[in-house]
């Protein structure tokens, strides 16, 4: 029961309290690039969630069962990035085969997921958090991906409304998006006291 509690708390923590986009600034590039439309944003969010979960589990296992026992931590970053690239390739093939319309929408951003900082960031933070079992790693990975999806969908919704607003010319595009993100980050700080 205690374990379950830890898992639920950890999950909530990475989805809202320690949301990667708003507290660690990871995944800003797709965040600015794909958040123009809600459906694209949702697709991107789900793709990232999927890849994050897979690569989180894979890199954690790799690290715990192979690299640490063999004393090969020096090669950790190189191994991580190869695992992530492979996972992205898998998702790309899957989406192209079964959801061609979604594939068209993603365009360049699907291959770019492999350089999405959220994913590598998560794999590195699993170490920092001292995750000590596979289940915990899996839950945290899934939560992180979901947190990214949540952030990008909220942003897409706001930006659709923003199209109707009269934004000063020099702030149009990226600047106003960043300022909006700042306000969202401020709102998310409200969750701050909830856990730990």
């Amino acid at each position: 029961m205690d374990r379950l509690g830890t898992l639920v708390m950890g999950f909530l923590s990475v989805v809202v309290v320690n949301n990667f986009v708003f507290t660690k600034f990871l995944g800003i590039c797709p965040y600015l690039g794909v958040s123009g439309r809600l459906d694209t944003a949702l697709g991107m969010g789900l793709a990232v969630t999927f890849v994050t979960t897979i690569s989180g589990i894979m890199t954690w296992s790799l690290d715990a069962y192979l690299l640490t026992p063999l004393g090969l931590q020096v090669t950790r970053y190189i191994c991580y990035i190869i695992v992530i690239a492979a996972a992205v390739q898998l998702v790309e093939m899957y989406v192209r085969r079964f959801f061609p319309a979604l594939y068209e929408l993603f365009g360049i951003f699907l291959p770019l997921i492999s350089t999405n900082c959220v994913i590598l960031g998560l794999c590195l933070w699993l170490d920092v958090w001292e995750t000590d079992n596979l289940l915990e790693a899996a839950v945290l990975s899934f939560g992180t991906g979901l947190g990214f999806a949540l952030a990008i969908c909220i942003m897409a919704g706001i930006r659709q409304q923003l199209l109707l607003a009269d934004v000063p010319r020099s702030l149009r595009g990226a600047p106003i998006t960043l300022i909006t993100a700042g306000l969202l980050a401020l709102a998310f700080m409200g969750f701050g006291g909830m856990i730990r």
């Binding site: 507290t23 600034f25 960043l178 300022i179 993100a181 700042g182 306000l183 980050a185 401020l186 700080m189």
Partner: peptide, 8 residues
């Protein structure tokens, strides 16, 4: 110093 400051 917080994320807000960075974004804005």
């Amino acid at each position: 110093q917080m994320p807000v400051g960075a974004f804005v």
